[in-house]
Amino acid sequence: MARYSKKDLKRLFWRSWPLMGCFNFERLQSQGFVYALMPFLKDLYPKKEDFVAAMKRHLVFFNTTPQCGPFIMGTTLAMEEEYANNPETFDVNAINEVKAALMGPLAGIGDSFFWGTFRLIGAGIGAPMAAKGNPLGILIFILVYNIPNFYVRWKGTFLGYEQGVNFLTNASESGTFEKLTEAAKIVGLVVIGGMVASMVAVSTPLTIGSAEGKIVIQDVINSIFPNLLPLLTTLGVWALLKKKVSTTIVLVVILALGILCKYIGVL
């Protein structure tokens, strides 16, 4: 029934790589998406006007997490094939409707997993190792991110083509996407919580009293609420970001406060 073999789909996988090649502010990944499907569109529509219409159909706004791109391309290919076979009965508008319905939710779940979880865990373990001069940290970072990255891109190509629309209907009916996104958020937040404590370094040299009666304030903080200062710093920066203060200004504020607080001896 299906027109394209595993070998053809491998080609789709390779053609999906330059998705972001001409990323732009107007239609984002549109050209990359057309590029991936091009040989298939050419094959499906031997008549020039059909081929032109197909190219233009996909030269529209497209944006998703790159790791989810191959799945959407596979699904789109299956629908294009359906349309090429039954141009009278298949509603061509459905193709872009399904694409639009897929790219948003898949970007949500993809960003949570790839940016917010795999990359974060890889960097969370690898970066402190590398910062101490251990090259193994780099390898850990690359592997933790890229094993799921290549698995999802490779599998997604075939899964999208073979059962894209069905898979999607089932998954959205059972709420799998929401649950997966929420699960990714949980891992992400636990890891971020840990990193606030382990990676933000703020402490105070202040002391109360002098000579033998001296109380070191940082010791008091450590015994009651360790990493209180890093926590407050992070919450402060977050509050600024929430108020739409740009990262540039936040950076300047931190540099200025660092210099000032060091000068007066608070930090």
């Binding site: 940016w115 990193m195 710093t233 920066v237 931190i254």
Partner: peptide, 21 residues
């Protein structure tokens, strides 16, 4: 002072991640 600030800079990254997740 810049050294002190450098220790606090990861807070920007953490706050950006919090905005995201």
């Amino acid at each position: 002072g810049l050294s002190v600030a450098a220790g606090a800079l990861p807070a920007i990254g953490m706050a950006l991640l919090l905005e995201l997740t």
